[in-house]
Every structure is written in C-alpha cells, then in structure tokens.
Design a protein around this nucleic acid. Structure first.
Length: 271
DNA sequence: TACCAGGTAAAAA
DNA sequence: TTTTTACATGGT
C-alpha cells in the first residue's frame, strides 16, 4: 500500500546510507526493498510513485514509518532558503528528493553513535550488525534492534567478542543500565538534551549532536565535531577554521544543511 | 605493512 | 589547564 510523501521524493537517495556504509542488520536492504521492524512487525519499504510502498501496511505503524522516512523535515522552506547560497542551492537542486531518514529509537541512536566513534562507518556497521544479530529478535530478513533491557543483562566480555573495544563495551552496558529516561529527552530543548547526554560516560558532544540531528530531527542540530562534515565543508567552502561558528551562516537549517553537504560530497562533489 | 576512519576519557605534561 | 595517548576493526 502506498504511503504518500511530499514530492519530489527519492527513496533510493534518501535511504542509501543503509548500504553505502555497510550492512545494517536492523535496517536491511533485500532484493530492492528496505526491511525494518516496526512495533514488532517486519515491514518492507519500496520506492513507488508519489511515496513509498509499505508492505504489509498497518494503520498503527504508518506514523512510525513516516517519521522514519523523515517527514518532520521541512524541505520546501529549506529549498527556498538554500537558493541564496550557491553551494546549498546547487545541492538542493542536484539532490532534489533527498529527505534524510530519522533514527526511530533513542537507545539505537546512541548505541549506533558509540559504535561509530573514531572508526570508519564500515567498521562500525560490521560490528553493530553482529551486535544486532546477537541480541535482537530475528524476523524474516531484518532483526529488531536489541532491547535496552536485554543489553543491561549482557557482559562487557560478550561485547568485546563482537569487536567492541573494552571502553565502548562499558559505555553501551552502562547506557543500558542508566536510569535516564531516553524517551523523555524529546520534550527538552536542544541544550538540555546535550547536557543530559554528555553527562553520561562515553557520550560526548559529537554523539549528542547526532542524537539531536538524526533521532530528534532538530532543525538547528549541527555536528561540528564530525570528521565527515568537516571534510564536506572544506570541499565546498574551503578551509573553515571554526566549524561551530560556521553554523551561523546555515541558520535556521543547520541540520538539513549538514545532511545535504555530507550526501553532496558523496553524490555531487564540487567540480 | 602501516595507516586511517563521521570520538572519548584518562593520563601526562 | 592543555596536550597526548590508547583504543579494536575493516578497508586500502
């Protein structure tokens, strides 16, 4: 059944992160469709005219699917705003239909970031997929991302065996066991979310920024410490000494700008 | 083979 | 207080 999305929409471009950076067992490409578990049911998403074909379709998960597909992003105002900037104007046109996906679950978002700290995204994906297959419930193709409660019972040695560093194994298990309510973070302003996350061991500014950007979809999130973003900004704008300060130029679309710059460097690098 | 990759905390200076 | 170091894996 078709779930309509604002046009233009390019499903392949918008979800390409789930294959170009390696295999993600929780959000898995299979035979031209993207498989993921929503509310205890595996769903297959496929490109379709006017939106995305969702199978099986269930009214109860439609809102979750739409959020996953990045519906909260305001692309039309972004495109109009981007016209004033030569770089983003070109990317908004060249990547027309790119709507960044949102990470549906806060625990998944944080564990995903921890696995990606310092190492390449490909390494992170390989390690994370072993983690998902070990602790997550298997469905037809995808696995549900492991429940926080299950990881609270895991041991550091088990995670080390999957390729986590000892440090990262500690971070993930401590995160699973902390009493911080990760769902309540969505009700707090950006700065408060950052403060609560950074207070946890293993979660730094970079991780907090990506949580705001990719889980909460906050418009002004800007992962200034991100190596990939730094390379993308350098490629399009030249040397920028202070990436945090550069964000002022991208206000009020810091988050979408970051996504278009990152994907732009991959798909439409400067000539 | 050695080096780097979408960081972070802890040790050392 | 600021700078340096260790960290595990996958790709080149």
């Amino acid at each position: 059944m078709l779930v309509p999305l604002p046009q233009p929409y390019d499903f392949e471009l918008s979800t390409s992160r789930f294959d170009v950076y390696g295999r993600d067992a929780a959000t898995l490409w299979h035979d031209g469709g993207l498989h993921r578990v929503f509310a205890g049911r595996e769903v297959r998403l496929e490109a379709a005219p006017g939106g995305v074909d969702v199978h099986p379709h269930d009214g109860a998960i439609e809102a979750d699917v739409l959020r996953f597909l990045g519906l909260p992003f305001e692309l039309e105002p972004f495109r109009a705003w981007a016209e004033a900037d030569p770089v983003l104007g070109r990317l908004a046109l060249g990547l027309a239909g790119y709507r960044p996906v949102l990470q549906p679950d806060p625990f998944e978002a944080l564990v995903t970031s921890i696995t990606a700290q310092q190492v390449s995204l490909q390494s992170a994906a390989a390690i994370r997929s072993r983690f998902v297959e070990r602790y997550g419930t298997p469905y037809e193709y995808a696995h549900a991302f492991p429940e926080r409660e299950r990881i609270a019972e895991a041991t550091e040695g088990e995670l080390f065996g999957l390729g986590f560093s000892n440090r990262k194994a500690e971070y993930v298990i401590a995160l699973a066991r902390t009493d911080l309510d990760l769902d309540e973070l969505s009700e707090l302003p950006d700065e408060e979310v950052r403060a609560r996350l950074v207070a946890l061991r293993g979660l730094g500014e970079w991780t907090a920024d990506w949580f705001l950007a990719r889980h909460l979809g906050r418009p002004h999130a800007w992962p200034a410490g991100d190596l990939g973003l730094r390379k993308a900004v350098a490629a399009f704008y030249g040397d920028v000494p202070d990436l945090r300060a550069f964000a002022e130029r991208l206000h009020p679309f810091e988050n979408l700008s970051a996504h278009y710059l990152l994907n732009g460097l991959r798909v439409l690098p400067p000539s």
